[in-house]
């Protein structure tokens, strides 16, 4: 499964990059979201891929039984997912504002930032 997941991650990155290079800002954001998912998966896969052993201490035991998924990366990814959402929302708000100011979502027309 690791190989398959690696391929999925590669595809997510490739798709994300391709979307980011499109003309429209909205596609750029979709690409960004895809890369965010890909990065989370990459962290997840790089620790370990173990079937159905959540890092939870069973009742009556004092420690997690031996093959378990790495809890630290999970904690990392969990906050990353939530913050990724907030960042995406921020980016969308920005896009909306830009559209209000520039009247276009084509990246070529957003070359002047100040002055």
């Amino acid at each position: 499964m690791t190989l398959l997941l690696a391929i999925v991650i590669g595809a997510l990155y490739a798709g994300g990059v391709y979307m980011m290079l499109r003309k429209t800002v909205v596609k750029l954001l979709i690409g960004l979201a895809m890369i965010g998912n890909a990065a989370n998966l990459l962290i997840f896969v790089s620790s370990s891929v173990v079937r159905s052993h959540p890092p939870i201490v069973p009742k009556g035991s004092s420690a997690v039984p031996a093959p378990y998924a790495d809890p630290l990366t999970q904690a990392l990814i969990l906050t990353a997912i939530v913050i990724g959402f907030a960042v995406l929302a921020f980016a969308l708000a920005l896009v909306k504002r830009v559209y209000g100011e520039v009247g276009s979502l084509a990246l070529e027309e957003m070359t002047v930032s100040d002055e």
Partner: peptide, 16 residues
Amino acid sequence: VVIGVTLSILFSKAEE
């Protein structure tokens, strides 16, 4: 915090 942030984001968007 999560409730507050998520709702403020989506409400301000939806009110728009």
